[in-house]
Design a protein around this nucleic acid. Structure first.
Lengths: 256, 256
DNA sequence: TTTTCCTGTCTGGTATATCGGACACGTATC
DNA sequence: GATACGTGTCCGATATACCAGACAGGAAAA
């Protein structure tokens, strides 16, 4: 990947901070403690620089000597900082603020949904700018087949699990139509891997719902963010909403 | 060599890496997301520098914008690195789960402590069943003379090492009393070899602390597990706690 | 033993990252 | 409206952090 002009002399001098970031990334991808010169080699960096840098980082506690005492790896301080991240950025907290931001940006009702028992629970909601509220209340428990979020929340589950989580009465949509169970399973699975999905007119005939998945570290769907729109919203607005929604859901997701 | 002429106009230009470390420490001690200029102020650093640095770190994912979108805090990458630390570090991982188990069994606050620089760092904590919390936060840095764990963590060190690790201000106990250095050294050494030790009323007058050492393969004290109890806990309960604590610390220790 | 390779520290020179300050813009206060 | 303050970006100057390379000590190979 590194094609450099050898003729061009190119005296490349890099920043300490950049070296630091590259060093941490290298440790992470290697997955195990490394020797200092091993690090310098794999980073194509001068040994003296890396020695200096590792010294500063071990003094601070971000790195630690481990293994035979000549290898370095992440240190206690990194763990503490990671814990702080979790403490502050629990999914719900981050999801909630992101929902607020998104809602204010596009002027529509946004919700953060998770699986709760065999229903979809709305954990957080921010109403849109429109005076007429078309949203559900926080804490509402909605049957999964009624919503876009429900399909996403089940998208990584097996057909058996989905069937176990879906009761017959939930398959009766608000308009009275009965959704066949197999069809619902197929819809869930086709939602897998999609950055967002749109469902029109199920929960009531006047609205459509765009939803995007929020992923766990393991790639499982932990939650969904959804936008509730009038069914006759201009196409350009819908596209804009969808774009922003996908960005938001990526931001909240825990996987890289 | 460390004291420079302050009168000499002192045009202080600091390294990016040092700024970075100070920035992370500031975020941690503040405990919540901070504005960028708030960071620059509290670090006494130029705004332009901090903007640049925060930009690099958010691009990398070590920091993340959160809250209202103009505040920064630790990011996903920090969490991943912290996880790598745990994965690599058997002791702390096993110690943490054991602390949880112990705390649930006896219903009291339990902590896993290690030496970090010249302080005691609480790496993991599980609160007790009592509604009133008497515990310290994770990541807290506590002077060694204040705790039972501190004495254990130093118990295998020489008098010289202990003195080097103990600053004068740390010898001032929370109640204002000054602990003589020699007395502290003696207490550390008398803790050596003990399966557990009890300290009453130092860190505050309402609690006592029982601590037990966790040993390295080499027989050095790597960490300590401690239980925080009300000072008026029934004697039988204290004895029960101590017995279970010693069993836990043996279980976590790496030596046979 | 000698040779070879690796490790860790140190130093001087120079490319450049940091810094101070200016600028434009947004937001509160009067 | 006017004034004051806070935010985010940009730019030139220079203090210095990074780099190359030398060096000494240790370990393994010959």
């Amino acid at each position: 990947m590194a094609d450099q002009q050898i003729s061009k002399a190119a005296p490349k001098r890099e920043r300490g901070v950049d070296r630091l970031l590259a060093l941490l990334a290298q440790l992470q991808s290697h997955g195990r403690p490394m020797r200092i010169s091993e690090l310098a080699n794999s980073l194509a960096a001068p040994r003296s620089t890396i020695y200096e840098l590792v010294g500063a980082l071990t003094d601070a506690g971000l790195l630690e000597f481990s293994g035979d005492g000549k290898q370095v790896f992440f240190g206690k301080l990194m763990h503490l900082y990671g814990k702080s991240y979790l403490k502050e950025n629990e999914l719900i907290r981050r999801g909630s603020t992101e929902v607020d931001r998104l809602s204010l940006a596009i002027g529509e009702t946004c919700e953060l949904c998770v699986l709760h028992h065999n229903r979809q629970a709305i954990i957080h909601m921010h109403p849109g700018a429109s005076p007429q509220r078309i949203s559900s209340e926080i804490g509402a428990q909605i049957p999964l087949p009624w919503t876009a979020s429900g399909r996403l929340l089940l998208s990584h589950r097996s057909a058996e699990e989905i069937k176990a989580l879906t009761s017959a009465e939930d398959l009766v949509l608000p308009n009275g139509r009965v959704l066949p169970l197999d069809e619902f399973v197929a819809q869930c699975h086709s939602a897998s891997g999609m950055p967002s999905i749109v469902i029109k007119g199920i929960i009531n005939s006047l609205t459509q719902c765009i939803a995007a998945p929020v992923f766990d570290l393991d790639g499982e769907v932990l939650a969904a963010i959804c936008i509730v729109l009038p069914i006759d919203a201009p196409r350009s607005h819908v596209i804009d909403c969808e774009k922003r929604l996908v960005a938001s859901s990526r931001k909240v997701s825990l996987n890289a």
